[in-house]
């Protein structure tokens, strides 16, 4: 029982990080219907900014998060303006291939010796690790930090999306962007803002990932990105609570399979669940069924 609860805690830890990445995917998809493959690499850049801030400059934790958020936001807005905006009215597949191109570029450009380098770098712990033992279940302050930072981000996001003018504009654009434009919403600004907001969350996620699994590499964004996207689809893409739910399911299933079956099947199980869920509910757990118009 203790072992099981311990695994639940470990699953929550990775699930929360996936949730932060999945939100970026789901918001961007909700607005421009684009699978933003470069998002996982923005997450990687966030982790590297965190690495530099902690190791080289020894900034306090808050400054580390802020620098990662700012860096990722600027990067994502740049990518959106340079690569995706010119293709907004082209066939959807052109943007998708461009997204893959941006993703490959970020991975291989940063892995050059002249940039970050191709190796694995250890991410120093920015604070001493404290372990609490509660009836045989170990909880670390790292997990506490991940939990509180993620919940804070989710509440902030909920506030932005449902309580601000920009949030209302985002929901309007996601519902119907032509009409939203006609109603005086500046669609371009809203789309850039969405990319930036998603990237900010990915930046926070990158730093948290670095703290929890203290090794970073320029290709580290690929698998978490893919899984986070899958989580977003699992929960119903375009749906914010769905993304979090999907990410938590993803984290749990992955941890449980590693713990009870074999860690070799860890990457596979998430996708088995995805395919099963899609067969049962083709638009994801919390997704609304789409009506076909003739």
């Amino acid at each position: 029982m203790e072992y099981f609860l311990q695994q639940v805690i470990n699953g929550l830890q990775i699930g929360f990080v996936y949730a932060l990445i999945a939100l970026g995917y789901t918001m961007v998809y909700g607005i421009v219907r684009l699978i933003n493959f470069a998002h996982g690499d923005v997450f990687m850049i966030g982790a590297f900014i965190g690495l530099y801030a902690v190791e080289r400059y020894q900034w306090p934790l808050t400054a580390v998060f802020v620098s990662a958020v700012v860096g990722c936001t600027i990067l994502a807005v740049l990518i959106e303006q340079l690569a995706y905006r010119p293709l907004r009215h082209a066939p959807k597949i052109a943007s998708l291939i461009t997204a893959i191109g941006v993703s490959l570029f970020l991975e291989y450009f940063t892995s050059l010796r002249q940039v970050f380098g191709p190796h694995f770098y250890s991410f120093p712990r920015p604070f001493p690790v404290v372990r609490w033992n509660w009836h045989g279940i170990l909880v670390t302050n790292i997990q506490a930090v991940i939990f509180f930072v993620t919940v804070f981000c989710l509440l902030l996001l909920q506030f932005i999306v449902f309580r601000t003018k920009m949030g209302r504009a985002m929901r309007a654009v996601s519902f119907d962007y032509v009409t939203a434009g006609l109603m005086g919403v500046n669609v371009n600004v809203v789309i850039s803002f969405t990319f930036g907001l998603g990237a900010a969350l990915a930046g926070v996620g990158g730093v948290l990932y670095g703290i929890a699994y203290p090794q970073v590499n320029t290709f580290m964004g690929f698998m978490p990105g893919l899984k986070a996207f899958t989580a977003a689809v699992l929960g119903g893409i375009g749906n914010i609570p769905g993304a979090v739910l999907g990410a938590l399911i993803m984290g749990q299933s992955e941890t449980m399979v590693s713990a009870y079956v074999s860690s070799a099947y860890r990457d596979g199980i998430a996708f088995v669940i995805l395919i099963l869920v899609l067969l049962w509910k083709p638009t994801g757990i919390l997704g609304t069924p789409r009506t076909e118009k003739v």
């Binding site: 293709l87 052109a94 461009t98 490959l104 570029f105 191709p118």
Partner: peptide
């Protein structure tokens, strides 16, 4: 190792110029 830096750039430019 610049190979995989140039290829994505070529890919992006091709898509921007000829999306079809």
């Amino acid at each position: 190792e610049f190979r995989w830096v140039l290829i994505p750039v070529l890919l992006i430019v091709t898509m921007l110029l000829r999306p079809q």
